[in-house]
Nucleic acid binder design. Structure first.
Length: 954
RNA sequence: GGGCGCAUAGCUCAGUGGAAGAGCGCCACCUUGACACGGUGGAGGCCGAUAGUUCGAUCCUAUCUGCGCCCA
């Protein structure tokens, strides 16, 4: 990285580039050592609190985390510098399925006993061991990003305190009737053999088939089915049928059919309602029922009903009183032979038994083939259609989800949603950008019961115990449950001895058996905004976190991506309102998704994942952070291109070198320096611009406009400070005027300090490094004061003057380039027809203009000399007298083009001004502006025309 | 089917009811004592289409076309 320089050098300890890899860790440690991540206890400091969206404990940092945590860190650092007492609360969730999966895989790889072999207690101990060893990956990675979380408060959803809170919540909701046990269809994941919630199912359209089966009518019945229609849709031809055709995308489920439904208005089947078909393979007599679920347009219009294996059919079955017969096992194999519910009422003829035996124990997809083959062989397969079908997949397991009839615990989400909807309607919580409120309402208004039980071992075990008679005791502890059980059974007439025997596990069995299931991970995540702050224990006065809980709930803002509005935001709203009687956060800032360059989601299978840590290694955390923030425009996804990261790394280097220049020139603001005291126009100008930038950046942060804030500080640093101020200041810094030099040093140092502060939330490492390198300073930049915008630092006249000069230099450079004047050549400049103000400006800045435009002399003339290249700047004519050097014809052409351009503008303005409606109805200021524009263009045109005349006179 | 969003320079994207912007890329020139991870200059756009509102539309409204995402 470093450029080799021979011999001692004043700059030897200030390398030409910042070395992020070498510096980041050290800087982060310095922050941590200084306790800079802990909330300030300054009296009167306003609390500012963010709870981190807890990453999955098995996870590692991906680009979504990088963006999410960069934005949180920016807010945290900004508010901290502004003097608020900032708590950024970190932690992980325990990720039930994912973690269990990781540990099981580990057991398998190491050829150790499986989960089931070692038993629940040993397995859970194993998971904890894994967590201690490998669970902290992502929090280490967040440190590399620069995240200023208060690690001393790190929490985990399986912590003792949080687990206690989960039990408390469960019990209270149960007692309030908001949690209940119910037997209904769930989304069953056959791979993990657990229920999952609707949200954990991904519906994906895949290529599938629609198999049309014939179900023979029972009792030898027949009917007339229309097969041809006239133009009006009236049937003209019928055929006699002794079967009903049904279509299915999942043939194996027919084994559990208990009915066939037709639409009540479907004339074709009117006479069949109330009759029966004989279910092939099975031999069950099942009724034909009328139900509006049957779609006359779809297939034949008749639909098989499998209440135990299809959500819609379950409802139809309930309406029609059809039984639900489960024909599958937990791992999605067909279960017939030992299946009492299936066998009930059937006649197991040898032919049937043979098919059942072939099917029994087969995987559902195997069974599907067997069923289809059977229908084909028996002439009952009408046809097979290729069809796009939407299939449900488990988001973790990737296997097809099976609707499955089981007992599960449910949260009455609909009831809890009421307060959560009202809170947003009343503006207690605000979504930014605002349009996400619609998504939130949409979900909340259509919310379904939330299945919270999972058939896993890793998680919060449900605090419910069952007595010998199956009675359920829900309690926060086993002791409490036992007391309740004893009370109940005593009242029922059991003797104490009998109960005692049961407690010891003798006699009929143990008194209480705990529900083996655990809760959905999101159940504990929903409590995160208050459990991490110490609830419920901290409600007690005198508890260490009592004040924390009281002052920091509701938290200030939640920063998250839209894809977990349903998973998490909505559920935190419900739980927070129910248990804390207030919303969990004031603002919800919803940020973008990070996509690849082509706008595709990053995924391992696509191989388009960009690893944030690799980018940090290559370009530094600052560059990655700035890239993400600069692109975090509201309501838009981020397409991440590495070139962009490289560009912002270059920006960091630019800043680094500007600071290096400042150090070399001893540019430091003294402790008592007052920027309002600057006298030089140049200095007043940069103070003015820096002050405006302070306002812009602060305002942008306050409204979560990260990209605007990034843009403002980027432009100011590079295009104002580096490109112009430092260049313009060089004569003063390297000249002999001691007073001017001193003031310029102070102002340059002061401005650099503004930049470091404004940039710090985006680029904490390089700015902190420079903070330490550019002046003797006490304390860390991270804890320095955020600058304020002051009206007295405004200097519009100075700004106008410097902008005039910048315009002049740019015009000269432009003309030089067009004239192909060698960059190194110093040439004279003539100025004609300057007014007094312009003359004064030119005189004041002649030195820098000569330097930056590479001029030899500047002279005032009445009229430009013969054969000069001429241009107009702010109403004055300037010329580069290059007789003999310039191509007269080309110069004429150039002037003509310029004139034409001016005239085009004049014509456009004239057209506007000629429109009476415009003059009468547009605001006066707008009309004035147009008039003044016209005057400017006209003056320019005239001057250019005169210049052209002079050239023609040659 | 319901909802949300996008279409602006070659690419990635800002932006505003009253003079089209950035980064990257491209072209030309420049190793000038902060910086070649740099400097200077430049080319490049009927702001998706149509209609409407307006004195005035890239911006507001409607329709259309194309493309995303979420939910059923």
């Amino acid at each position: 990285m470093t450029n080799a320089k021979s011999g001692p050098d004043a700059r030897s300890d200030f390398e030409k580039t910042f070395d992020p890899a070498g510096a980041e860790q050290e800087i982060y440690d310095a922050w941590e050592r200084a306790g800079a991540f802990r909330p300030s206890d300054a009296p009167g400091a306003e609390p500012f609190t963010i709870v981190i969206p807890p990453p999955n404990v098995t996870g590692s940092l991906h680009m979504g985390h990088a963006l999410n945590n960069t934005l949180q860190d920016i807010l945290a650092r900004f508010e901290r510098m502004r003097g608020k007492s900032v708590l950024w609360q970190p932690g992980c969730d325990h990720a039930g399925i994912a973690t269990q999966m990781v540990v099981e895989r580990q057991l398998m790889e190491r050829q150790e006993p499986s989960r089931r072999e070692m038993g629940r207690e040993a397995f859970v101990r194993r998971v904890w061991e894994w967590k201690e060893e490998s669970g902290g990956t992502i929090t280490r990675q967040l440190r590399r990003l620069g995240a200023s979380c208060d690690w001393s408060r790190e929490r985990f959803t399986m912590d003792e305190g949080l687990s206690k809170a989960v039990a408390r919540v469960f019990v209270q909701l149960y007692r309030e009737g908001l949690i209940y046990r119910d037997k209904r269809l769930v989304n069953w994941d056959p791979k993990f053999q657990t229920a999952i919630s609707d949200l954990e199912v991904e519906n994906i359209e895949t290529d599938g088939h629609f198999w049309h089966f014939r179900y023979p009518l029972a009792d030898g019945a027949t009917y007339e089915f229309p097969v041809e229609y006239d133009e009006d849709g009236k049937p003209t031809k019928w055929e006699t049928r002794d079967y009903v055709s049904v279509a299915t995308t999942r043939p194996e489920t027919m084994l559990g059919d208990t009915g066939v439904a037709v639409h009540p208005d479907d004339d074709r089947y009117k006479d069949l309602v109330g009759r029966f078909v004989e279910l092939p393979i099975v031999g069950r007599r099942i009724p034909i029922v009328a139900d509006e679920h049957a779609d006359p347009e779809q297939g034949s219009g008749a639909v098989k009903i499998t209440p135990a294996h299809d959500f819609n059919d379950f409802e139809v079955g309930k309406r029609a009183g059809l039984p639900a017969i489960n024909v599958m096992t937990d791992d999605a194999r067909i279960a017939l032979l030992d299946n009492g519910a299936f066998l009930d009422g059937l006649d197991p003829t040898p032919a049937r038994r043979k098919v059942w035996e072939a099917l029994d124990g087969k995987d559902r997809f195997e069974a599907r083939k067997i069923v289809v083959a059977w229908f084909e062989e028996n002439g009952l397969l009408d046809r097979v259609e290729e069809k796009k079908v939407v299939q449900p997949f488990g988001d973790r397991s990737g296997v097809v989800i099976e609707p499955y009839l089981t007992d599960q615990w449910y949260v009455d989400a609909k009831k809890l949603a009421e307060a959560a909807i009202a809170a947003v309607e009343q503006g207690k919580t605000r979504f930014v950008p605002e349009n996400w409120t619609k998504t939130y309402y949409q979900w909340m208004h259509n919310i379904q019961p939330w299945c919270v039980s999972r058939q896993l071992w890793w998680g919060h075990q449900i605090p419910a115990w069952y007595g010998p008679d199956g009675h359920c005791f829900v309690a926060e502890s086993e002791e409490e449950a036992r007391r309740a059980a004893i009370a109940r059974y005593t009242a029922e007439g059991y003797t104490l001895e009998e109960i005692d025997r049961m407690v010891r596990g003798e006699g009929e069995g143990p008194l209480l058996a705990r529900d083996p299931d655990v809760l959905d991970t999101w159940f504990s995540s929903a409590l995160w905004p208050f459990t991490t702050l110490g609830w419920p224990d901290a409600e007690r006065e005198g508890h260490a976190d009592h004040a924390v809980l009281k002052t920091r709930y509701p938290t200030s803002v939640l920063v998250t991506a839209f894809d977990i509005i349903f998973f998490w935001v909505a559920r935190m709203m419900m739980m927070g309102l129910h248990f804390m009687k207030d919303v969990p956060f004031r603002d919800v800032y919803i940020h973008a998704l990070v996509l690849d360059e082509q706008g595709r989601k990053m995924s391992k299978s696509k191989g388009n994942v960009i690893d944030p840590l690799a980018l940090i290694d290559k370009y530094g955390a600052d560059a990655l952070r700035f890239t993400l923030a600069a692109q975090a425009a509201q309501g838009r996804n981020i397409r991440l291109a590495e070139a962009r990261v490289e560009g912002y790394r270059n920006f960091a280097t630019k800043l680094w070198n500007a600071a290096r220049f400042c150090v070399m020139n001893e540019c430091v603001a003294g402790p008592g320096f007052d920027p309002a005291s600057a006298t030089a126009t140049l200095n007043k100008w940069i103070v003015h611009e820096a002050n405006a930038c302070v306002g812009e950046v602060s305002a942008a942060f306050e409204t979560y406009r990260f990209n605007d804030a990034a843009g403002a500080i980027y432009r100011f640093t590079w295009n104002v400070f580096c490109d112009w101020y430092l260049e313009l200041a060089k004569p003063a810094l390297q000249g002999d005027d001691a007073a001017a030099k001193a003031e310029t040093r102070q102002v340059a140092g002061w401005t650099l300090e503004r930049i470091l502060k404004l940039l710090h939330p985006f680029m904490p490492f390089v700015t902190e490094a420079l903070w330490g390198k550019t002046a003797r300073r006490e304390g860390l930049l991270m804890l320095a004061d955020w600058p304020l915008e002051f009206a007295e630092l405004r200097a519009p006249e100075a700004a106008a003057e410097i902008n005039w000069m910048i315009g002049l230099i740019t015009a000269i450079r432009s003309l030089r380039a067009e004239m192909n004047i060698p960059a190194a050549a110093r040439i004279p400049l003539e100025a004609a027809s300057l007014d007094d103000a312009a003359r004064a400006r030119l005189a004041a800045h002649e030195g820098v203009v000569r330097r930056l435009a590479r001029l030899s002399v500047v002279s005032l003339v009445d009229a430009p000399g013969q054969g000069a290249a001429q241009f107009v700047h702010d109403g004055a004519v300037f010329a580069l007298p290059l007789a003999g050097v310039i191509d007269v014809a080309a110069e004429k052409a150039r002037l003509e083009k310029e004139i034409a351009k001016a005239e085009e503008e004049i014509a456009r303005v004239d057209k506007k001004l000629a429109n009476r409606n415009f003059v009468e109805r547009a605001p006066a200021a707008v009309v004035e502006e147009q008039k003044s524009r016209r005057a400017d263009y006209a003056a320019q045109r005239d001057k250019l025309a005169a210049a052209l005349d002079r050239l023609k006179a040659l």
